[in-house]
């Protein structure tokens, strides 16, 4: 930071204290405040969105691995697989799940990052510049307020007319700078916030599409396995009587123990 920069910073800190103490009037621009608040809201939402989106893939993976573990336990009843051909439904089930776990989820990852996660991250990166612009405007406003207070004070003292003239000139300059920045931001901020919709909507659509594709592929690979299931089982499941088979087993077991 250059010497002038330090000086400016000290001055501004002083003004801020004075503002707090009520010694200096604050320039208020409601319109800008409104836009800034909207901007801040957008910021917090998009950041939250980013973390949730990151978490989503994890939950998918966890769900998958939990399902996989059930299938694995079931297939381990039938021993280790020998060669290529699974010998039981449980083993085929496990193989199918493992395959989708390896392939579908992995294939999903890159496009997910590409179309959903990274754009949101990129958008969050835009904030840095805009935040700086807002900060600059804030600084200019403080300068302007301070100068105005100074002018006010000098008006009360008629003996320093020379100084008053000088400061008034400074005040004019600083007001110009502030107003220029203020107008610019007031104009550009809503434009930026309004662009969020065309920016995020494609990501949302990609998210929905990816989700569709993911579940579609999962369903397809399972449905393929379904062709190996006998028709009776399928029918029983539809009728909701598949559970009865378990009950039958249990009843036989009970008889056996008696």
């Amino acid at each position: 930071m250059s010497w002038t920069g330090v000086k400016k910073a000290i001055n501004r800190a002083g003004t801020q204290v004075l503002v707090k103490a009520g010694q200096v009037d604050v320039t208020v621009d409601t319109e800008f405040e409104f836009e800034e608040k909207r901007y801040r809201t957008m910021q917090s939402h998009s950041r939250k969105l980013h973390s949730e989106l990151k978490y989503y893939l994890d939950t998918l993976r966890r769900l998958e691995s939990a399902q996989l573990s059930v299938a694995k336990a079931l297939s381990s009843f039938y021993g280790q697989q020998q060669g290529e051909k699974p010998t039981s439904l449980a083993q085929e089930y496990y193989t199918a799940l493992e395959k989708t776990h390896d392939e579908v989820a992995k294939a999903l990852e890159t496009p997910y990052h590409q179309t959903v996660l990274n754009p949101v991250a990129r958008f969050n990166l835009y904030y840095i510049e805009i935040d700086e612009a807002i900060k600059k405007r804030e600084h200019k406003r403080l300068d302007y307020d301070a100068l105005r207070a100074k002018v006010q004070k000098l008006i009360d003292r008629p003996d320093e007319e020379e100084k008053l003239k000088d400061t008034e000139q400074q005040l004019d300059g600083s007001r110009e700078v502030y107003e220029k920045l203020n107008e610019e931001l007031k104009h550009e901020l809503p434009r930026f916030t309004n662009l969020r919709i065309p920016f995020f909507d494609p990501s949302f659509e990609a998210f929905a599409r990816l989700q569709m594709r993911y579940f579609r592929e999962n369903y397809e690979s399972l449905a393929q396995l379904e062709t190996k299931l006998d028709a009776q089982t399928r029918k029983d499941y539809m009728d909701g009587t598949l559970d009865l088979r378990l009950d039958l087993c249990l009843a036989k077991m009970r008889e056996l123990q008696a």
Partner: peptide, 26 residues
């Protein structure tokens, strides 16, 4: 038989759920 049927039920259930999800999303 029991384990086999558990497998079948679990499989059918999963298939069913995925089908439901797939159909709804579609």
């Amino acid at each position: 038989e029991f384990v086999e049927n558990i497998t079948k039920i679990t499989f059918c259930k999963q298939l069913d759920l995925y089908q439901d999800i797939d159909a709804s999303l579609r």
